[in-house]
C-alpha cells in the first residue's frame, strides 16, 4: 500500500494515467499516492475535503450493511460508478476482502471490452464474482434489435436481477446509482426498502435520519443500498483520477467502427448487429460517457484520451450523461416505473 511518507499538501500527482486504452488497467495493488492519501499530519486537524467526506460516507454505509445483513451482495455493472464502488469496498474492509460477493447481471449484449475488463478485475483483486444470465430470455432469443429496448431491458435486466436475487436469497444489494442521475433517483433513500416482490413504493419510503439506517426487514423482503447517492458525475471522475482507479477503456476516445441509428451513434461491437440498407459503418474517434448494452448506448464524438481530458470535456458539456441511454427516453417517469418493477 502507498504510505504517507513524502506526501505533503503540495504533492498533487495526477499522473497522465492513460496514453491509450491498453494502459488503463494500472496495477491496482500499488496505487500511486494521489491527493487523498496525503494528509496533513501536524497542526490543527484539517477539516475533510468534499471527496474525503463522500468517501467516508460510502464506507460507513458499506460497513453498516456488512454488519446488519446476513446475505449482502454488490451489484457490479462494470461501469465507472461500479469501479468506484468496488474500490470503496476494497477500502472499507481492508485488510480483509469485502465480505460479500459481486454480482453481474449479464444481458449478453454488453460491450466485449466490458466483459474482458470484468474478468480481469475479478482475477486481479480476487473478489467473489457471480454472473447471472436470464437463460429463458436467451432461449426465447430476446434481443434489443428485434424486441426493442423496453422488452429487452425488462427481461434481460429487471427480470434477470429478480431471478438472481431470489436464487441466492440476497437480503441486501448494493447499487451504484447516484441522485444526480435522474429525477426519481434524486428522491430515493440510501437504504431503499423493497417488498417480497422487489418492488419500490416511492410514496411510502422510510424516514432516513442522520446516519442511522433502519436495516430491519421481514422474511423475503430486501434492501437496495446506494453508497454513491450523494456523489455527482464530477465527483466520480475526480475520485477516479485521484485514486488511480482502473476503468473500462471504452470511456477513452479511440477510432471505433460506428453506425448512426435512431439519433444515436452505435458501436458495431459484434456480428449480431445487422445493418439496414441505408447504414454504413464508419471509423470515427468516439468514446462513451456511460456504459450499458452496446446497441442501446450512444457514443459521443470526442478526442478525450486521458482522465483529465474527460473531466475537462464533461465540465463543458451541455447534455446530461443519461442522454446516451436509450432506456431513459422511452417515456417520462420511465425510470420510476422500472424501479417499481424491481429495476435497480
Amino acid at each position: 500500500m502507498a504510505q504517507n511518507a513524502g506526501c505533503s499538501s503540495e504533492t498533487f500527482r495526477l499522473g497522465r494515467l492513460v496514453g491509450g486504452a491498453g494502459v488503463v488497467l494500472s496495477d491496482h495493488a500499488t496505487p500511486k499516492p494521489g491527493v487523498a492519501v496525503c494528509r496533513k499530519v501536524t497542526g490543527m486537524p484539517a477539516s475533510l475535503t468534499h471527496l474525503q467526506r463522500l468517501e467516508a460516507e460510502s464506507i460507513h454505509i458499506m460497513r453498516e450493511v456488512a454488519a446488519s445483513f446476513s446475505r449482502p451482495v454488490m451489484l457490479y455493472s462494470i461501469g465507472k460508478d461500479s469501479s468506484v464502488l468496488l474500490h470503496l469496498a476494497m477500502k472499507a474492509f481492508y485488510p480483509a476482502k469485502p465480505p460479500f460477493p459481486f454480482l453481474h447481471v449479464d444481458t449478453t449484449w454488453k460491450f466485449r471490452e466490458m466483459i474482458a475488463f470484468r474478468d480481469r478485475m475479478a482475477a486481479e483483486l480476487g473478489f467473489d464474482l457471480l454472473v447471472h444470465i436470464n437463460e429463458e430470455g436467451v432461449r426465447d432469443g430476446i434481443n434489443p434489435f428485434d424486441n426493442g429496448s423496453n422488452v429487452h431491458t425488462h427481461i434481460m435486466k429487471t427480470v434477470a436481477l429478480r431471478q438472481a436475487l431470489d436464487k441466492y436469497g440476497f437480503d441486501a444489494a448494493f447499487g451504484g446509482a447516484r441522485r444526480d442521475e435522474e429525477k426519481s433517483r434524486a428522491k430515493e433513500r440510501i437504504f431503499s426498502f423493497r417488498n417480497a416482490s422487489h418492488a419500490w413504493d416511492p410514496k411510502n419510503q422510510r424516514p432516513e435520519m442522520w446516519k442511522i439506517y433502519n436495516t430491519r426487514i421481514a422474511e423475503g423482503e430486501s434492501i437496495r443500498v446506494f453508497p454513491l447517492s450523494n456523489w455527482t458525475e464530477l465527483d466520480i471522475w475526480q475520485y477516479i483520477l485521484q485514486e488511480n482507479i482502473p476503468i473500462v477503456p471504452l470511456y477513452f476516445a479511440k477510432k471505433r467502427p460506428v453506425v448512426d441509428r435512431g439519433g444515436m451513434t452505435i458501436l458495431v461491437d459484434d456480428e449480431r448487429m445487422k445493418l439496414q440498407p441505408d447504414e454504413k459503418v464508419e471509423e470515427r474517434t468516439v468514446r462513451f460517457r456511460t456504459l450499458g448494452c452496446y446497441p442501446l448506448t450512444g457514443a459521443i464524438e470526442s478526442d478525450a484520451q486521458t482522465l483529465e481530458e474527460i473531466v475537462a470535456e464533461m465540465l463543458t458539456a451541455r447534455t446530461s450523461e443519461r442522454q446516451g441511454r436509450l432506456i431513459d427516453r422511452d417515456e417520462a417517469g420511465s425510470m420510476e416505473k422500472k424501479k417499481r418493477e424491481g429495476y435497480f
Binding site: 441522485r179 429525477k183 434524486a186 428522491k187 450523494n230 417520462a332 417517469g333 420510476e336
Partner: peptide, 22 residues
C-alpha cells in the same frame, strides 16, 4: 418540475418526498 421527480408528484403538482440536488 425539475425536482418533483415522482409521477404522483407531477400529477398532483405537490412535493411528497425529499429530493436531493447538487
Amino acid at each position: 418540475l425539475l425536482v418533483d421527480g415522482l409521477e404522483a408528484e407531477r400529477q398532483q403538482g405537490i412535493t411528497i418526498d425529499v429530493a436531493y440536488r447538487f
